[in-house]
């Protein structure tokens, strides 16, 4: 049986919160999620070190789906799908 590779969902909205300090990126993400439809995919860019720890925890608590967390050059990209 061949494994089916899931293609990553297309990002609907990108929130560039680089330069914003804790808890700014999370607050910007929450605002974007509120303005989105279920199924939308939001990418948050954050240069704040606490956010890559806090945002996945918030996503779990809020019942959304963490698609990916990638550390790029000096910032993190956290991709989340609105699930409810």
């Amino acid at each position: 049986m061949t494994a089916v590779l899931e293609t990553p969902p297309t990002v609907t909205t990108t929130v560039d919160a680089r330069g914003s300090f804790c808890p700014g990126p999370l607050m910007e993400l929450i605002r974007a999620i509120r303005e989105s439809q279920v199924g939308d995919v939001i990418a948050v860019l954050s240069s704040d070190k606490g956010s890559k720890l806090d945002i996945p925890k918030w996503i779990e608590k809020a019942g959304h789906r963490l698609v990916s967390l990638t550390t790029l050059d000096g910032y993190d990209e956290i991709v989340v799908q609105k699930a409810r």
């Binding site: 804790c22 808890p23 999370l26 607050m27 929450i30 806090d54 918030w58």
Partner: peptide, 8 residues
Amino acid sequence: VLTAGAAA
């Protein structure tokens, strides 16, 4: 910051 975290 404590307030914002709780509110989130």
